[in-house]
């Protein structure tokens, strides 16, 4: 098994490509980090592989969160990104490698398998993602709210959730620096 050089993210891509083949979509290198898109049902397997595979050892759990991409880019863009995804970042301290896993989930019925059996540190992150995005984590022991009161309604980090103070005026800091330099402050 060839050991991957320090920071050589290209090799990780090849490894993943050969071992997971077609199940991974869109292996890209982005600012030195590897971006992977994986379907929910393959997630646990992929994460376990990344953690345990010799020569990879992505055993440092960085974070897990979500992204609501439904408002991304111009309205009439051709290839819209997937509207809702789970975002997982792992790090390999032995080889100084990063991988970002994107897990597209169905916005109508957002369910994603929990990875807490692979990374126990994900427990709190999944709870937070659940309350902020409404994504259910299958296999999580306790998805109660971490931050918000129990009776809170809405999923704050979804783009559809507007901050009350932003309903009237979208953005208080909208004034352009150019304008400010020219005109009044």
């Amino acid at each position: 098994m060839p050991v991957i050089e320090r920071g050589d993210v290209g090799h990780v891509r090849e490894r993943l490509d050969s071992d997971f083949g077609t199940r991974l979509k869109d292996l890209r290198i982005n600012h030195g980090h590897l971006d992977v898109i994986v379907q929910p049902h393959d997630l646990v397997e992929l994460v376990t592989f990344l953690r345990d595979a010799p020569g990879l050892r992505f055993r440092f759990f960085t974070f897990l969160s979500g992204v609501d991409r439904s408002a991304f880019g111009p309205e009439d863009a051709e290839d819209k990104p997937h509207p809702l995804e789970v975002l997982i970042h792992l790090y390999s301290p032995d080889h100084v490698l990063h991988v970002t896993i994107h897990v597209p989930v169905d916005p109508a019925d957002p369910v994603c398998p929990s990875i807490n059996r692979v990374f126990a540190g994900a427990l709190w992150h999944e709870r937070e993602t659940h309350e902020m995005f409404g994504i259910d984590f299958d296999g999580h022991p306790n998805l109660s709210n971490l931050y918000l009161p129990e009776d809170f309604e809405g999923r704050p980090l979804l783009k559809s959730f507007k901050l009350p103070s932003r309903m009237v005026k979208d953005w208080p800091g909208a004034k352009d620096p150019e304008e400010a330099a020219a005109g009044g402050r």
Binding site: L146, Y147, L148, P156, F161, L163, D170, W171
Partner: peptide
């Protein structure tokens, strides 16, 4: 048990430059 001073920065930054 945490959350007593959650300020929601991840949401707030989306409305600020």
């Amino acid at each position: 048990i945490i959350g007593y001073m959650h300020r929601g920065y991840e949401k707030l930054v989306e409305a600020r430059d």
